[in-house]
Amino acid sequence: MSIAWVSAGGIVGLAIAYGLFRFAKLGGGDGKLIIALGMLVGPVGILIVLFGMAIAGGVLSLIAMLRGQRDYAYVPAIAAGFVGYLGFVYFVV
Rank of each mutant, 00 (worst) to 15 (best):
53 M>K: 03
28 G>N: 02
18 Y>N: 04
6 V>K: 01
72 Y>G: 14
84 G>C: 11
68 G>M: 02
11 I>H: 00
15 A>F: 13
62 L>E: 11
89 V>W: 10
55 I>G: 13
26 L>E: 02
87 G>E: 01
13 G>F: 08
92 V>K: 09
74 Y>V: 13
77 A>C: 10
28 G>Q: 02
3 I>M: 08
34 I>R: 00
73 A>T: 13
77 A>V: 07
29 G>P: 13
92 V>Y: 15
82 F>H: 02
27 G>E: 02
85 Y>V: 00
12 V>Q: 03
24 A>F: 13
16 I>F: 14
12 V>K: 01
16 I>A: 12
47 L>K: 02
83 V>R: 02
36 A>C: 10
51 F>L: 13
92 V>G: 06
71 D>S: 15
62 L>A: 15
43 P>M: 03
34 I>C: 01
22 R>Y: 13
35 I>R: 02
18 Y>W: 15
62 L>P: 05
20 L>R: 09
22 R>K: 14
60 L>P: 03
30 D>Y: 05
15 A>M: 14
89 V>Y: 10
32 K>I: 04
69 Q>T: 06
28 G>T: 05
88 F>V: 05
14 L>V: 05
59 V>C: 09
27 G>P: 12
68 G>N: 09
29 G>S: 07
89 V>H: 11
3 I>Y: 07
68 G>W: 03
56 A>V: 07
89 V>L: 10
30 D>W: 05
14 L>W: 13
86 L>V: 13
